[in-house]
């Protein structure tokens, strides 16, 4: 690497503060890659947390129908709270840390995931469950072989929404210095650094697109029987 401290006379897209700047991408690629990986880590951790909480909640709602309205109501209420306020309200619990952001995003994803899992389970026709019992499937086998596969498309659709939302919302974690692309984006905005603002914005959207695409591929692999009847969404 030949660059040291650039003299002021240097004229390139960085000193001209251009939006699109190869020099910026080249010199900050490590920083950008690190921030993207942190961003990805926060998103994955939060959605996994959301799933871990959503599964038992959905199961409870199925088991005790009276709970359903309360659970759906309260998870929807969480979603109504603006992210900046939700993260802030969680600070007394987990401090100015990345965990606070993960917790907040996990709570947000609950709204989508609990509903998706419930809708998915509901999509299984009772006749199918009956006939599976009829051929001698136990409850466990019924769940694994019949209900989960049939619920999968709905659950995956919910998961895609949760992941894409989480990628965008993770940027708000910048207020807690939680890392990820949001911090760099905000720094870029505050210092009028156009190349950084554009690069981090594009990376955010790309990350969301790539994760969404990956989930579509996973869904296709898991549900080979749906391949011919493309679901229009």
């Amino acid at each position: 690497m030949a660059l040291a401290i650039a003299p002021l006379a240097v004229d390139n897209c960085l000193t001209r503060n251009e939006w699109i700047c190869g020099e910026y991408l080249l010199t900050r690629r490590t920083e950008l890659a690190d921030a993207t990986m942190q961003h990805l880590g926060i998103v994955l951790a939060s959605v996994v947390l959301g799933l871990v909480i959503a599964l038992p909640l959905a199961w409870l709602s199925r088991r005790y129908p009276r709970l359903e309205a309360i659970l759906l109501g309260s998870t929807t209420a969480i979603y109504t709270i603006p992210s900046l306020a939700l993260f802030s309200l969680l600070v007394p619990l987990s401090g100015l840390t990345v965990q606070t952001v993960v917790l907040g995003l996990g709570l947000y994803s609950l709204t989508i995931l609990v509903r998706a899992i419930l809708d998915g389970l509901r999509a299984v026709p009772p006749e199918v469950v009956e006939s599976a019992r009829g051929v001698g499937h136990s409850d466990g086998a019924l769940l694994l072989k019949v209900q989960v596969p049939l619920a999968l498309p709905t659950v995956m659709a919910g998961l895609r929404v949760a992941v894409v939302s989480a990628v965008a919302l993770t940027t708000v974690g910048a207020i807690l210095d939680a890392g990820g692309l949001g911090g760099m984006l905000l720094d870029g905005q505050r210092t009028n650094f156009k190349a950084q603002v554009l690069a981090t914005s594009v990376l955010c959207v790309l990350l969301a697109l790539v994760l969404d695409l990956l989930l579509v591929l996973v869904e296709r692999m898991l549900t080979p029987w749906l391949r011919r009847t493309e679901v229009v969404r």
Binding site: L186, Q189, V197, S201, C204, V205, L209
Partner: peptide
């Protein structure tokens, strides 16, 4: 709606305000 979901608020606002 799907596109809107993928765009961070602070990204759009930063791009507009610096642009």
């Amino acid at each position: 709606t799907n596109v809107g979901r993928a765009i961070p608020v602070i990204a759009l606002l930063s791009l507009l305000s610096l642009g």
